[in-house]
Design a protein around this nucleic acid. Structure first.
Ligand code: FES
Ligand code: FES
Lengths: 149, 149
DNA sequence: ATAATTCCTACCATTCCGATAGGGATTATA
DNA sequence: TATAATCCCTATCGGAATGGTAGGAATTAT
């Protein structure tokens, strides 16, 4: 029941990119350095985010990443779905439901997984990158010279 | 973000034991057979549940397992906490918080994990074994000759 | 005595995760 | 046009976790 490092790194990166929304593209290398994320690993993560349509990339020198939508159009749910594949606690209630449990029709527990998936989904899809940026800014206003994630 | 097989098997077993509440102890072997769970694996799971104080065991011939509390005193939250160790989506918001994230005090994402942990916890701790038994019974009443999990 | 059970400990195979690595493609700019 | 800075693609790898197996000891009813 844990969110992967990939998921966490990806969210950190996305929030960072969102912070630069409207400006110059931001490089994977820069993000990796500032948040202490392995550089080559982050590259792969950014590719994932790109394939999911959350960021767009600019290649070549002075290249980097920018949001593919506005910060208030992208939710943490979108991010985690792209990064960890899914946010359901059990395969039988996954959105891209491939694997079924054996006794699915006779299972009374499935409802529980469904409910959990629902509340996670609801929470995550209610928080946008914009929200996260705002929170970060607020905190940095109160505590001078400190950079929040 | 998936619940382990151990977690699922354990919950199935617990519900089954709860179904026999007040009667004879029920054997791991019997549970394993009926729900198609590897026998020796289930033995270990039952040990986990025992150590967590959810079931008590009776050794020797005609032995087996019984609930250590009433079915309405044990929640699915108790069960999963015992089986999967924890239900938090990130170590920094775990109840038995050992590992801390590096920049914990500067992290704005932690709040999100906290919120998710909260809603999972709330859902799981609101469902008792009694609830699950009732649901099972209701469904079996409506569909004759079918045994639900 | 025997059979049925739980209990304890070790082990094993596979998968997943986090990360590293090499090298190619693209682009600004000097 | 050369160079440096990027992103991009693919392969690989070590370690940890997961799911399961195994042997045999301890306990108990019959
Ligand atoms: S159907 Fe998936 S847990 Fe029962
Ligand atoms: S402190 Fe744990 S994710 Fe930020």
């Amino acid at each position: 029941m844990k969110i992967s490092a990939k998921g966490e790194y990806g969210i950190i990166a996305l929030i960072d990119v969102a912070n630069y929304y409207g400006g110059e593209p931001i490089q994977a290398k820069s993000i990796a350095n500032r948040y202490n994320i392995p550089e080559r690993f982050l590259e792969q993560i950014m590719t994932t985010l790109k394939k999911a349509g959350l960021v767009k990339s600019i290649r070549g020198s002075h290249g980097g990443y920018q949001l593919a939508k506005t910060p208030w159009e992208i939710t943490l749910g979108d991010a985690l779905k792209a990064l960890d594949g899914d946010i359901s606690p059990m395969y039988c209630v996954s959105e891209n439901n491939k694997e079924q449990c054996s006794k699915e029709r006779l299972c009374t527990i499935k409802d529980v997984w469904e409910e959990i998936r629902g509340c996670i989904q609801k929470t995550l899809s209610s928080i946008t990158l914009k929200d996260m940026c705002n929170k970060k800014m607020e905190r940095e206003m109160k505590a001078a010279h400190m950079y929040f994630i």
